[in-house]
Computed example of a mutant assay.
Amino acid sequence: MIVVYHGEMKMGFFMSRLLLLVNGLSLDAPLVSIAWQEIAARQLHVPLQSSERLLLFLATWLVYAGDRLLDSRGVLTSVVEIPRHRFVARNFWPLLSLWVILFMATAVMTCLLLNLTAILIAVLILGLLAGYFGICLRLPSARWVIPREVIVSLFFIVAVLFFPILEARSTVNQELGLSLFRFSLPAGGLILLNCLGIASWEAEKDRQSGESTLATRFPAVVKFFPGIAIATGIVFLLIDRLLAHEWNIFGVSVCTAAVLIGFLNSERIPQDLKPILADAMLIVPFVILSILS
Protein backbone atom coordinates (compact mmCIF):
# COMPACT_ATOMS: atom_id res chain seq x y z
CA MET A 1 0.00 0.00 0.00
CA ILE A 2 2.85 2.37 0.88
CA VAL A 3 4.58 1.62 -2.41
CA VAL A 4 1.38 2.32 -4.35
CA TYR A 5 0.79 5.53 -2.41
CA HIS A 6 4.30 6.82 -3.07
CA GLY A 7 3.95 5.81 -6.71
CA GLU A 8 0.75 7.84 -7.00
CA MET A 9 2.44 10.79 -5.29
CA LYS A 10 5.36 10.66 -7.75
CA MET A 11 2.98 10.40 -10.71
CA GLY A 12 0.94 13.34 -9.42
CA PHE A 13 4.10 15.41 -8.92
CA PHE A 14 5.32 14.52 -12.43
CA MET A 15 1.99 15.48 -14.02
CA SER A 16 1.90 18.75 -12.09
CA ARG A 17 5.41 19.64 -13.25
CA LEU A 18 4.55 18.68 -16.83
CA LEU A 19 1.41 20.85 -16.82
CA LEU A 20 3.35 23.77 -15.35
CA LEU A 21 6.01 23.39 -18.04
CA VAL A 22 3.42 23.33 -20.83
CA ASN A 23 1.83 26.46 -19.38
CA GLY A 24 5.18 28.18 -18.83
CA LEU A 25 6.14 27.57 -22.46
CA SER A 26 2.77 29.02 -23.57
CA LEU A 27 1.86 25.79 -25.38
CA ASP A 28 -1.60 25.40 -23.87
CA ALA A 29 -3.22 28.24 -25.84
CA PRO A 30 -1.93 27.03 -29.25
CA LEU A 31 -3.15 23.50 -28.52
CA VAL A 32 -6.58 24.85 -27.62
CA SER A 33 -6.65 26.97 -30.78
CA ILE A 34 -6.00 24.09 -33.18
CA ALA A 35 -8.56 21.93 -31.36
CA TRP A 36 -11.21 24.62 -31.87
CA GLN A 37 -10.05 25.23 -35.43
CA GLU A 38 -10.87 21.58 -36.09
CA ILE A 39 -14.30 22.01 -34.50
CA ALA A 40 -14.92 25.08 -36.68
CA ALA A 41 -13.93 23.17 -39.82
CA ARG A 42 -16.38 20.40 -38.93
CA GLN A 43 -19.16 22.87 -38.18
CA LEU A 44 -18.62 24.61 -41.54
CA HIS A 45 -17.98 21.30 -43.39
CA VAL A 46 -14.68 22.47 -44.89
CA PRO A 47 -11.27 20.74 -45.16
CA LEU A 48 -8.13 22.00 -43.42
CA GLN A 49 -4.54 21.78 -44.62
CA SER A 50 -1.72 20.75 -42.27
CA SER A 51 0.02 24.04 -43.05
CA GLU A 52 -3.08 25.95 -41.88
CA ARG A 53 -3.02 24.13 -38.56
CA LEU A 54 0.70 24.83 -38.16
CA LEU A 55 0.34 28.53 -38.99
CA LEU A 56 -2.46 28.94 -36.43
CA PHE A 57 -0.40 27.11 -33.81
CA LEU A 58 2.61 29.36 -34.42
CA ALA A 59 0.59 32.59 -34.62
CA THR A 60 -1.23 31.81 -31.37
CA TRP A 61 2.03 30.94 -29.62
CA LEU A 62 3.65 34.17 -30.81
CA VAL A 63 0.75 36.24 -29.45
CA TYR A 64 0.52 34.54 -26.05
CA ALA A 65 4.26 34.12 -25.54
CA GLY A 66 4.81 37.71 -26.64
CA ASP A 67 2.23 38.96 -24.15
CA ARG A 68 3.90 37.06 -21.33
CA LEU A 69 7.34 38.31 -22.36
CA LEU A 70 6.01 41.86 -22.17
CA ASP A 71 4.46 41.19 -18.75
CA SER A 72 7.72 39.69 -17.45
CA ARG A 73 10.06 42.27 -18.94
CA GLY A 74 12.40 43.64 -16.28
CA VAL A 75 10.59 41.79 -13.47
CA LEU A 76 12.75 40.13 -10.81
CA THR A 77 12.01 36.42 -10.52
CA SER A 78 12.07 36.66 -6.73
CA VAL A 79 8.99 38.90 -6.67
CA VAL A 80 6.92 37.11 -9.29
CA GLU A 81 4.27 34.97 -7.61
CA ILE A 82 2.35 33.57 -10.60
CA PRO A 83 4.20 30.43 -11.84
CA ARG A 84 3.96 31.16 -15.58
CA HIS A 85 5.25 34.71 -15.08
CA ARG A 86 8.06 33.41 -12.87
CA PHE A 87 9.02 30.84 -15.51
CA VAL A 88 9.06 33.42 -18.31
CA ALA A 89 10.99 35.96 -16.20
CA ARG A 90 13.61 33.34 -15.29
CA ASN A 91 14.01 32.23 -18.92
CA PHE A 92 13.41 35.61 -20.54
CA TRP A 93 16.31 35.75 -23.01
CA PRO A 94 16.09 32.13 -24.30
CA LEU A 95 12.33 32.54 -24.78
CA LEU A 96 12.79 35.91 -26.49
CA SER A 97 15.36 34.36 -28.86
CA LEU A 98 12.97 31.51 -29.65
CA TRP A 99 10.17 34.04 -30.20
CA VAL A 100 12.24 35.99 -32.74
CA ILE A 101 13.23 32.82 -34.63
CA LEU A 102 9.65 31.50 -34.80
CA PHE A 103 8.35 34.94 -35.77
CA MET A 104 10.67 35.00 -38.79
CA ALA A 105 9.78 31.40 -39.69
CA THR A 106 6.06 32.17 -39.44
CA ALA A 107 6.47 35.29 -41.60
CA VAL A 108 8.24 33.27 -44.31
CA MET A 109 5.61 30.50 -44.21
CA THR A 110 2.81 33.06 -44.40
CA CYS A 111 4.32 34.70 -47.48
CA LEU A 112 4.82 31.34 -49.19
CA LEU A 113 1.46 29.74 -48.37
CA LEU A 114 -1.10 32.56 -48.41
CA ASN A 115 -2.28 34.86 -51.19
CA LEU A 116 -1.90 38.63 -50.89
CA THR A 117 -5.46 39.24 -49.70
CA ALA A 118 -5.19 36.69 -46.91
CA ILE A 119 -1.80 38.09 -45.87
CA LEU A 120 -3.16 41.63 -45.67
CA ILE A 121 -6.13 40.47 -43.56
CA ALA A 122 -3.82 38.53 -41.22
CA VAL A 123 -1.47 41.51 -40.88
CA LEU A 124 -4.44 43.78 -40.11
CA ILE A 125 -5.71 41.44 -37.40
CA LEU A 126 -2.30 41.04 -35.78
CA GLY A 127 -1.66 44.77 -36.16
CA LEU A 128 -4.83 45.62 -34.25
CA LEU A 129 -3.90 43.14 -31.53
CA ALA A 130 -0.34 44.47 -31.32
CA GLY A 131 -1.74 48.00 -31.17
CA TYR A 132 -3.94 47.08 -28.21
CA PHE A 133 -1.05 45.53 -26.28
CA GLY A 134 1.16 48.49 -27.20
CA ILE A 135 -1.39 50.94 -25.82
CA CYS A 136 -1.76 48.87 -22.65
CA LEU A 137 2.02 48.81 -22.22
CA ARG A 138 2.17 52.60 -22.39
CA LEU A 139 -1.17 53.27 -20.71
CA PRO A 140 -2.10 50.42 -18.31
CA SER A 141 -5.40 52.18 -17.62
CA ALA A 142 -6.50 51.21 -21.15
CA ARG A 143 -7.27 47.74 -19.80
CA TRP A 144 -10.04 49.31 -17.75
CA VAL A 145 -11.66 50.60 -20.92
CA ILE A 146 -11.30 47.40 -22.94
CA PRO A 147 -10.61 44.38 -20.67
CA ARG A 148 -7.93 41.98 -21.83
CA GLU A 149 -10.32 39.06 -21.33
CA VAL A 150 -12.64 40.45 -24.01
CA ILE A 151 -9.77 41.03 -26.46
CA VAL A 152 -8.48 37.49 -25.91
CA SER A 153 -11.95 36.08 -26.59
CA LEU A 154 -12.40 38.10 -29.80
CA PHE A 155 -8.92 37.24 -31.08
CA PHE A 156 -9.54 33.56 -30.40
CA ILE A 157 -12.72 33.53 -32.49
CA VAL A 158 -11.09 35.39 -35.38
CA ALA A 159 -7.96 33.22 -35.26
CA VAL A 160 -9.67 29.81 -35.25
CA LEU A 161 -12.13 30.87 -37.96
CA PHE A 162 -9.54 32.48 -40.24
CA PHE A 163 -8.64 29.42 -42.31
CA PRO A 164 -12.05 27.68 -42.20
CA ILE A 165 -13.65 30.88 -43.58
CA LEU A 166 -11.00 31.07 -46.31
CA GLU A 167 -11.83 27.49 -47.26
CA ALA A 168 -15.59 28.17 -47.19
CA ARG A 169 -15.56 31.53 -49.01
CA SER A 170 -16.91 29.97 -52.22
CA THR A 171 -20.05 28.73 -50.43
CA VAL A 172 -21.20 31.89 -48.66
CA ASN A 173 -24.92 31.61 -47.86
CA GLN A 174 -27.42 31.94 -45.03
CA GLU A 175 -26.62 28.47 -43.70
CA LEU A 176 -22.93 29.37 -43.44
CA GLY A 177 -23.80 32.54 -41.54
CA LEU A 178 -25.91 30.58 -39.06
CA SER A 179 -23.11 28.03 -38.61
CA LEU A 180 -20.63 30.81 -37.93
CA PHE A 181 -22.90 32.37 -35.30
CA ARG A 182 -23.66 29.01 -33.71
CA PHE A 183 -19.92 28.34 -33.41
CA SER A 184 -18.70 31.81 -32.45
CA LEU A 185 -21.07 32.50 -29.56
CA PRO A 186 -20.17 29.49 -27.38
CA ALA A 187 -16.52 29.44 -28.50
CA GLY A 188 -15.95 33.07 -27.57
CA GLY A 189 -18.05 32.76 -24.45
CA LEU A 190 -16.12 29.71 -23.26
CA ILE A 191 -12.80 31.50 -23.74
CA LEU A 192 -14.15 34.51 -21.84
CA LEU A 193 -15.30 32.18 -19.06
CA ASN A 194 -11.84 30.59 -19.00
CA CYS A 195 -10.17 34.00 -18.68
CA LEU A 196 -12.66 35.01 -16.00
CA GLY A 197 -11.87 31.89 -13.99
CA ILE A 198 -8.11 32.45 -14.19
CA ALA A 199 -8.57 36.10 -13.26
CA SER A 200 -10.70 35.17 -10.25
CA TRP A 201 -8.15 32.62 -8.97
CA GLU A 202 -5.31 35.09 -9.37
CA ALA A 203 -7.28 38.18 -8.30
CA GLU A 204 -5.36 38.81 -5.08
CA LYS A 205 -1.96 38.54 -6.77
CA ASP A 206 -3.13 40.72 -9.65
CA ARG A 207 -4.47 43.30 -7.22
CA GLN A 208 -1.16 43.42 -5.36
CA SER A 209 0.80 43.89 -8.59
CA GLY A 210 -1.61 46.54 -9.90
CA GLU A 211 -2.91 44.36 -12.74
CA SER A 212 -6.34 45.24 -14.12
CA THR A 213 -8.69 42.29 -14.76
CA LEU A 214 -12.42 41.76 -14.63
CA ALA A 215 -11.96 40.01 -11.29
CA THR A 216 -10.06 42.94 -9.74
CA ARG A 217 -12.65 45.38 -11.08
CA PHE A 218 -15.65 43.29 -10.03
CA PRO A 219 -14.78 41.34 -6.83
CA ALA A 220 -18.17 39.61 -6.85
CA VAL A 221 -16.91 37.53 -9.79
CA VAL A 222 -14.48 35.72 -7.47
CA LYS A 223 -17.23 34.78 -5.03
CA PHE A 224 -19.83 33.68 -7.56
CA PHE A 225 -17.60 32.23 -10.29
CA PRO A 226 -18.73 28.56 -9.94
CA GLY A 227 -22.36 29.62 -10.29
CA ILE A 228 -21.49 31.87 -13.22
CA ALA A 229 -19.73 28.98 -14.97
CA ILE A 230 -22.60 26.51 -14.48
CA ALA A 231 -25.21 29.07 -15.55
CA THR A 232 -23.14 29.94 -18.63
CA GLY A 233 -22.91 26.28 -19.62
CA ILE A 234 -26.68 25.85 -19.34
CA VAL A 235 -27.28 29.02 -21.39
CA PHE A 236 -24.92 27.77 -24.11
CA LEU A 237 -26.77 24.45 -24.19
CA LEU A 238 -30.17 26.11 -24.53
CA ILE A 239 -29.01 28.60 -27.18
CA ASP A 240 -27.49 25.82 -29.26
CA ARG A 241 -30.73 23.84 -28.90
CA LEU A 242 -32.67 26.81 -30.29
CA LEU A 243 -30.25 27.39 -33.17
CA ALA A 244 -29.93 23.73 -34.18
CA HIS A 245 -33.61 22.89 -33.46
CA GLU A 246 -32.50 19.76 -31.61
CA TRP A 247 -30.35 18.57 -28.73
CA ASN A 248 -26.89 17.77 -30.08
CA ILE A 249 -23.36 16.80 -29.08
CA PHE A 250 -21.83 20.21 -29.72
CA GLY A 251 -24.12 21.99 -27.27
CA VAL A 252 -23.64 19.28 -24.65
CA SER A 253 -19.84 19.36 -25.06
CA VAL A 254 -19.64 23.14 -24.60
CA CYS A 255 -21.93 22.97 -21.57
CA THR A 256 -19.77 20.20 -20.09
CA ALA A 257 -16.60 22.26 -20.53
CA ALA A 258 -18.16 25.31 -18.86
CA VAL A 259 -19.39 23.29 -15.88
CA LEU A 260 -15.99 21.61 -15.46
CA ILE A 261 -14.27 25.00 -15.43
CA GLY A 262 -16.65 26.00 -12.62
CA PHE A 263 -15.76 22.86 -10.65
CA LEU A 264 -12.08 23.85 -10.77
CA ASN A 265 -12.90 26.46 -8.13
CA SER A 266 -12.66 23.66 -5.56
CA GLU A 267 -10.18 24.26 -2.73
CA ARG A 268 -8.91 20.69 -3.17
CA ILE A 269 -7.25 21.65 -6.46
CA PRO A 270 -3.83 23.36 -6.08
CA GLN A 271 -4.07 27.05 -6.93
CA ASP A 272 -1.10 26.89 -9.33
CA LEU A 273 -2.76 24.16 -11.40
CA LYS A 274 -6.18 25.77 -11.78
CA PRO A 275 -5.28 28.04 -14.75
CA ILE A 276 -3.63 25.15 -16.59
CA LEU A 277 -6.53 22.79 -15.95
CA ALA A 278 -8.95 25.51 -17.06
CA ASP A 279 -7.12 25.64 -20.40
CA ALA A 280 -7.27 21.84 -20.58
CA MET A 281 -11.05 21.97 -20.10
CA LEU A 282 -11.28 24.01 -23.30
CA ILE A 283 -10.20 20.90 -25.22
CA VAL A 284 -13.05 18.84 -23.72
CA PRO A 285 -15.53 19.74 -26.53
CA PHE A 286 -13.02 18.56 -29.15
CA VAL A 287 -12.48 15.27 -27.29
CA ILE A 288 -16.23 14.66 -26.87
CA LEU A 289 -16.97 15.48 -30.52
CA SER A 290 -14.09 13.28 -31.72
CA ILE A 291 -15.37 10.31 -29.70
CA LEU A 292 -19.11 10.64 -30.29
CA SER A 293 -19.35 12.19 -33.77
Rank of each mutant, 00 (worst) to 15 (best):
P219L: 03
G131W: 09
L238I: 13
S293Q: 13
L76N: 15
A220K: 13
A122I: 07
L180E: 06
L25F: 05
T77C: 02
W144L: 15
H6C: 11
L137Q: 15
F13W: 14
D67T: 08
A278R: 01
V79L: 12
I39A: 01
G131S: 11
L102C: 10
T213S: 13
F183A: 03
N23Y: 04
F13R: 14
N23D: 14
A159H: 05
I269E: 04
Q271A: 12
Q37S: 01
A220T: 11
M281Q: 08
L44T: 10
V235G: 04
S78E: 15
W247P: 02
V100I: 14
P140K: 03
K10E: 15
I276D: 14
Y5D: 14
W36H: 11
S200T: 07
V160A: 06
A244S: 11
G7S: 08
G66F: 09
G210H: 02
L120D: 05
S33F: 01
S200L: 00
H45N: 15
L19P: 05
S253T: 04
D206F: 00
L260S: 05
L289V: 13
P94S: 03
T232F: 11
F183M: 04
S141E: 14
G7F: 07
F14I: 10
V145P: 01
A89I: 00
A203D: 02
D279T: 00
R217T: 02
M1C: 07
V22N: 11
I151Q: 03
R217A: 11
R217P: 02
Y5I: 14
L178K: 12
G131K: 07
W144E: 15
S266W: 07
S141T: 13
L114C: 08
P47L: 05
E175V: 14
H6T: 12
S184T: 11
V3T: 15
F181P: 00
L18Y: 12
A244I: 10
I125K: 06
L44Y: 10
I191P: 02
W61N: 02
V152R: 04
D240K: 04
S253R: 01
S26A: 12
D28V: 03
A258T: 05
L193G: 00
Q49I: 01
D240V: 07
P147W: 03
G66L: 09
S266Q: 03
V235D: 02
P47Y: 06
G12I: 09
G134W: 02
P147M: 00
L190G: 06
V88T: 12
R17T: 06
I239T: 10
V32D: 00
A159K: 03
W61V: 08
D272V: 15
G189I: 07
R84D: 02
N173Y: 11
L154M: 09
W61S: 01
E167H: 09
L154F: 12
F14R: 11
V235S: 07
G189R: 04
K10V: 12
